[in-house]
């Protein structure tokens, strides 16, 4: 691990100011992704700003009837929150399907959204990777790509976003609240938060350098039956091959977001119009522009079958 200086901050304004002052700075929350990557020298911040003492660890009701989740709320606490379990079960289920008990106790809302890909070549510093070293090439294209993305990809990168939580947040129309280094606040819809790779796969989100996530807001509950189904190589403590987050209303309409298939939680609102016609109609829409590799073509079929079983469960 490369050496770095370290400071603790007490307020979002202090955090933003510290980020503005230090060019090579990064925020550290749970540390469960950042430290992993720092040990491998994939991330090499010169300065760490510890945000764990910011008072952003609360879940509050919003005046509109939704929930405002502080950036520092731990994944365990978010999944166990009564209002989340009652009104946003999709989110509780997605969180509980991720990582391990130990990791969820540390992992934070903001850190989870910003976790980086699990592409094996991104982790292997001996291999070219456009995300890790822009312009060096993509080892996954033409390499071992079973786990990687089938849609939303580019010629520069076919990595997936690995978060379970973010898939549920996408289906729930979450909004990310931030504070820029200059101190001004803004909001970014979850749909616009993660970016597709294009020619710049190292740019992963709409955040500016040094921009702090303060909270994630959920709109008022939409009701319906919530199902999160994660398919993986072992029953627990593994990333998704494919995951489906669905909200199904009594009349058969609803929402679907898919994880494990794209560089961001994959949802196409237009495809949801076909919910009543069944899983194939929806996944045909979701994967209309898919560009799978020979190794990961199976993900389309897997997503369709997973959604089929989710719809059966939701209507049952």
């Amino acid at each position: 691990m490369k050496a770095f200086t370290y400071e603790r901050v007490a307020t979002p304004a202090e955090a933003a100011a510290a980020a503005a002052k230090n060019d090579g700075a990064k925020f550290i929350a749970g540390g469960t992704n950042l430290l992993d990557l720092m040990k491998l020298e994939i991330e090499t911040p010169t300065h760490l700003i510890d945000v764990n003492r910011l008072a952003l660890d609360k879940i509050e009701a919003t005046p509109e009837g939704g929930l405002r989740i502080g950036a520092l709320v731990r994944n365990t606490d978010l999944a166990a929150h009564e209002g989340v379990r009652r009104d946003y079960a999709l989110l509780a289920r997605a969180l509980l399907a991720g990582a391990s008990g130990q990791l969820r106790n540390r992992a934070t809302t903001a850190g989870n959204l910003l976790q980086r890909t699990r592409c094996p070549y991104f982790y292997d510093t001996a291999q070219p990777c456009n995300k890790r070293t822009p312009g060096s090439g993509c080892s996954a294209i033409g390499g071992f790509s079973r786990q990687l993305a089938v849609v939303g990809v580019s010629d520069a990168c076919i990595a997936t976003h690995p978060s379970d939580m973010a898939v549920a947040m996408r289906a729930l129309d979450a909004v990310v609240e931030t504070v820029k280094p200059g101190g001004e606040a803004r909001t970014i819809s979850i749909a616009d938060f993660h970016r597709l790779p294009g020619n710049t796969p190292h740019v992963e989100t709409a955040l500016e350098k040094g921009e702090l996530i303060a909270a994630v807001t959920l709109p008022p509950p939409v009701g319906g039956k919530h199902v999160y189904r994660k398919v993986r190589d072992r029953a627990s403590y593994a990333f998704a091959l494919v995951s489906v987050a669905a909200i199904v209303q009594p009349d058969g309409s609803g929402r679907v977001a898919v994880g494990g298939v794209a560089p961001k939680p994959w949802r196409i609102e237009g495809a949801e119009a076909d919910m009543r016609r069944g899983a194939k109609a929806v996944t045909d829409g979701l994967f209309a522009d898919a560009r799978p590799t020979h190794d990961n073509e199976f993900k389309r079929t897997l997503a369709q079958r997973t959604l089929g079983s989710v719809l059966t469960e939701a209507r049952g």
């Binding site: 370290y6 603790r8 550290i28 749970g30 540390g31 469960t32 430290l35 992993d36 040990k39 760490l48 510890d50 764990n52 365990t76 391990s100 008990g101 130990q102 990791l103 106790n105 540390r106």
Partner: peptide
């Protein structure tokens, strides 16, 4: 593993079990 993948380093901090390999000592003032 030193990477959060095995649980051998699990300790209890402020009542919660965590992986001690993926957290810095200075974060635990």
């Amino acid at each position: 593993c030193d990477h959060g993948q095995c649980g051998a380093c699990t300790v209890i901090v402020d009542g919660h079990r965590i992986n001690s390999c993926l957290t810095l000592a200075v974060m635990h003032e």
